[in-house]
């Protein structure tokens, strides 16, 4: 038994070894290290395919369409994007309301 015994899974969880093993394949020269936004070569295409596969895996857990998933740095950023993003959009739309002119 490893001590201290970890009873704080709500704060964070250890990465599952199978997850860590998969991640290792996307870092070094031997792996898929390309920029997923690179459109001009296979390094980029392979990385993009991996990102899109992951997007599908995330979508499936919550029964969403993969096109509805936006990557962020974590739930704090997601909360910020959702709340500031909606309020900002609404403010912008209100400012852009057409002003009618009488002729």
């Amino acid at each position: 038994m490893k001590k201290p015994v970890y009873l704080d899974y709500a704060a964070t969880t250890p990465v599952d070894p199978a997850v860590a093993a998969d991640m290792m394949n996307f870092l070094t020269l031997d792996g898929v290290f390309g920029n997923p936004a690179s459109r001009t070569h296979g390094y980029g295409w392979q990385a993009e395919a991996a990102v899109e596969n992951a997007r599908r895996q995330v979508a499936e857990l919550i029964h969403a369409d993969p096109r509805e998933i936006v990557w962020t740095s974590g739930a704090t950023e997601s909360d910020n994007l959702a709340i500031k993003g909606v309020i900002g959009q609404r403010k912008r739309a209100a400012r852009q309301k057409p002003i009618s002119s009488r002729r």
Partner: peptide, 14 residues
């Protein structure tokens, strides 16, 4: 830029 290994990790975990 998307960190591919992070996305792969989250996808596998989910």
């Amino acid at each position: 830029t998307l960190p591919t290994h992070q996305m792969v990790g989250m996808g596998k975990a989910f």
